[in-house]
């Protein structure tokens, strides 16, 4: 055995001076790696910017009040998206009313009341995960079959579309609500229960109020997904010429994404511009909703 810094059976590497003038993070391999990472970000965000810029350029000629106030027409110069805007509002509002309470209730059951070792509850959990991955168009087929079963002839009605979209975003709301509930510390629940509150009182007065920001964020994001969704509505026959304002849940309707799809498929350039302008409108609404959701999350979410 030799002195410190020497080798035992060559196991210790020869010494390298510490001040070698190089930087471990600046050798070729890590540098290339970092450049590739940057590149992937630049490409991803570059496409986003390109997408937004192109639809704004395509649509610029059609940003007029007519887009908001007029009905679709056979000529792009007279056409507007008024029924689509109202239709989207009707469908999303109906969806929200149907699905948010349901989703919260299901999440509360799973998170606060269910015995997690019970097979029924475990199956529900697995099932929610699965539903979240089911393609949206399948929900359209489900609603189509359901309405056929009820004997509904004209399936292009607000409640039909809302049914498909509700079931589509139900798992999203359940998952978001469960996460929000899980973030509320157990100590709060135990404190309440130890005072003789019932489990429901504890949930209603302590856990749920603390989880409201998370639930609100998740619900808004889920609704914005529903707002942008077209496939299930397409299956339900929403691609029709609608030249009237929807008037109730049994009324016929079209929505913004369907209107965009419709105009994109027309041969005339003018309709493509209308599709682009409507896309900008839809994106604007979605960015607002997303922004609101992110704001609520950052502003009101409690850090325990």
């Amino acid at each position: 055995m030799r002195t410190l810094g020497g080798t035992i059976d060559g196991a210790i590497r020869p010494e390298r001076p510490l001040a070698s003038g190089t930087n471990g993070e600046r050798r070729p391999a890590p540098l290339t790696f970092l450049v590739l990472l940057w590149l992937s970000l630049v490409v991803a965000f570059g496409v986003l910017v390109t997408l937004i810029v192109t639809i704004i350029i395509d649509g610029q000629g059609q940003f007029t009040g007519r887009l908001l106030s007029e009905y679709p027409a056979s000529s792009p110069d007279r056409a507007g998206a008024r029924p689509a805007i109202l239709g989207s509002a009707w469908v999303i509002a109906t969806t929200a009313i149907m699905t948010i309470p349901l989703g919260i209730a299901a999440a509360v059951h799973l998170e606060e009341f269910a015995d997690k070792r019970n097979w029924f509850n475990r199956m529900i959990e697995l099932n929610v995960q699965n539903l979240a991955a089911v393609p949206s168009i399948v929900y359209g087929l489900l609603a189509l079959a359901f309405l056929s079963l009820l004997g509904v002839r004209d399936k292009n009605i607000v409640i039909g579309g809302a049914l498909a979209l509700s079931l589509l975003i139900l798992p999203v709301i359940i998952i978001a609500t469960r996460e929000a509930l899980r973030a509320v510390p157990t100590e709060i629940r135990e404190g309440s229960l130890a005072l003789g509150a019932t489990q429901w009182q504890t949930t209603w007065r302590q856990t749920l109020p603390s989880a409201v920001p998370g639930i609100a964020t998740g619900s808004i994001l889920a609704l914005s997904r529903a707002l942008g969704e077209a496939a299930p509505l397409l299956v339900l026959g929403a691609l029709v010429f609608v030249s009237f304002d929807p008037s109730g849940i049994l009324s016929g309707y079209t929505t913004l994404p369907i209107q965009i799809f419709n105009w994109t498929g027309r041969p005339q350039e003018g309709f493509h511009q209308l599709a682009a302008a409507t896309s900008v409108l839809l994106l604007g609404v979605l960015v607002l909703m997303n922004g609101l959701a992110i704001y609520i999350r950052n502003r009101f979410q409690k850090r325990w």
Binding site: E190, G191, S192, A194, Q206
Partner: peptide
Amino acid sequence: VRRRIGMVFQKPNPFPKSIYDNIAYGPRVT
């Protein structure tokens, strides 16, 4: 049982409410 046998925990766990409402909570819910 829990109303008549109360419990105080290791970590203070006040509710995210006012001091007053923290005290009033128990009498209200029970």
